[in-house]
Design a protein around this nucleic acid. Structure first.
Lengths: 207, 207, 207, 207
DNA sequence: AATGAATGAGAGTTCATTCAT
DNA sequence: GATGAATGAACTCTCATTCAT
């Protein structure tokens, strides 16, 4: 009897089970960051977690389930880190800057996580279930940002522009950060964050 | 006597062989765009090309060879399309706009190609040989753009900013276009292109 | 967590795994002896072992690994059988006779093993890794025999002859035995052994 | 319409066809000697012959046919070379010495041929048709040698020994020569030939 | 709750052989 | 006679998943 999510909702999980799932997710992040998604077989992940491959399937009915959980976990962690930066901003501009700078710093602090979700997202373009979730996640982030831009325009703080295009571009630019930091490890992160925030501040502000 | 696989470089290929190679490359683009890189096995690609899987290996010694050829072909086609837009620009601003708008229009006209090379590039993170080529390609594009920004600054046309950060962001924003156009097929492409160009024009111009 | 495939050497193997490996090695010997090396695909070997082909790769990371293990196993078994015949010989002549007769009797008792390693050794002429091992094995046997001849000469027991030529010929004549016994199953093995030993005794003895 | 051997006998072959067959056989010998039997695909052989792979099948209905022809050709050439050495011998001893020394010198002069037929013979242990032929060839050589020994015994020139064992051993020792000469290219061939002949002279002569 | 041996489907690749030209 | 593009069967190897323990 597998303790898996069944259609209709999620039943409670025991403490030990939650712990195992967390351990497996962590090992997955580590493994993908180290050897890449394509080589990250269950055998490899299990080795890093110090467990047997069968146990992964025991806790995650399908490979997709595991990958989805990785993305969920990282996204949660990131959102938590970002909320402190964006909450209580005095202006839309300040919120945007908080978001961008927060994201960049999060990238610098959690490179493995970012690499992992980026590779999973790339690979998930085929796995239907994972893709749907990933797309939905993306869509909601996009929409939130779009709304923020619209509000900023209505508040007269931002110039007139297509909020959607801006949102897509901001997210794209942010998501390019991990790869850039990896390619150039000597990058001054704070400076990078400031430059990126400056860029979009100039792009949105009312002239 | 396999047509691929010879040391020393590329000797002449017969007309019929060139045609087959082209057909296979086209089928590969089509297949990846439709079902994703991970599912695009030789069987799938061959089916779409109406040939036997063995024929792909006959014309491309290794899978990597095929994928590299796909990237090369698409890059060539894109560069050709873009050069007409950027050449002869009166200002750095105009060149940037030309590049961005050209790219967006190319995306709209060749969505499958863009999706394919993006997925191949993502997947190539493991395959050493392919990765090196992909990285080099990317690096050269980045550097060119960076240089353009630096020149624009020296010419007094652009404000002071980190050329590298700007280059990374411009490319990221452009590369986000195909997915966006696919997700929202009703998008007004010309408008999208103009908005994106506006965005970066404001971001780089001397206030 | 595949049992093969770990860097650093050979860690402990479970009992069940050792058993399976032994079973697979035995099936390989049987298969090669029966249908020949070239036709001995994993499918054939697995059928004889009553397992699935995938299980072979599970226990032996590469085909070469399996073949190397077969050679190692047979060589060990043979050396054990021969050592009892050659140890404690009173003279070099007696040692030579012990070696030759021991080998011939071993051939008669383990025809399949001999055929198998001979075919593997022949086929390994291409596979670099296997070849090196096989060559080294061969070279050491040759050298040992050569040394024995030299010592026998220095002791005044053997006539003057080129030890190397003699060693090569003895080994060649011995290795021809399995095929001969297979071709003529009615051969009187003891007689064959004695004749072969006589042959080389006359060839080496001081007139 | 393939000009192939059909059951019932061999019809005449045109001059050009014979030439092609000879060229293909030569290229096969060359290829096997250079890259080994296992890697000697038709593509490789055809490349060396400067023809297309299809042409090989055109002249030799099956791969086996080609290999059989290679063995036949080399055996013929060898027999011709040896007959001059053995014919007209004054004694059985002299004939034996002539055979052995002739063989060794032939090995030194035609290394590629010897390597090729040795590898083909090894590999042919499975291919039924080739095996049968190879075995038959071997058997006839063996029997001839055996008969020679028996006659020598009847003539009172040789001691009493099992002619079959001696024949097997002589052939085995001779066939070990090419590998030894390849492994040690500096070997003095004439000396090697003399040593080998001495060895068997002592083994057969009446004490 | 956990193991790890075992399976089976599918991957890329090789190659003798066929056949339209 | 000759080509070389094309096929199809066979190969080794990978791996998520299953299941007896």
């Amino acid at each position: 009897m597998q303790p898996e999510n069944q259609s209709g909702g999620q039943e409670k999980r025991s403490f030990i089970e939650e712990a195992r799932r967390g351990q497996i997710v962590a090992a997955t992040v580590e493994t993908i960051a180290e050897i890449g998604y394509a080589k990250s077989s269950f055998v490899q992940i299990a080795r890093r977690a110090g467990i047997s491959p069968g146990l992964i399937t025991y806790h995650f009915a399908k490979r997709e389930e595991l990958m989805k959980q990785v993305m969920l976990t990282v996204h949660d962690s990131m959102e938590q880190a970002l909320s402190s930066r964006t909450e209580g901003s005095e202006s839309y501009s300040a919120a945007l800057r908080g978001l961008i700078e927060g994201f960049v710093h999060y990238c610098a602090e959690h490179p493995a996580e970012l690499i992992a979700i980026s590779q999973i997202a790339d690979a998930a373009r085929d796995a239907e279930a994972a893709r749907q979730w990933s797309d939905a996640q993306n869509a909601s982030t996009l929409t939130e940002l779009e709304d923020m831009f619209r509000e900023g325009q209505e508040a007269g703080e931002f110039r007139e522009f297509a909020p959607r295009v801006m949102a897509v571009s901001v997210i794209a630019a942010m998501e390019a950060t991990p790869a850039e930091l990896m390619a150039r490890p000597d990058t001054d992160v704070t400076q990078y964050a400031k430059e990126l925030a400056d860029l979009f501040e100039l792009a949105v502000r009312r002239a």
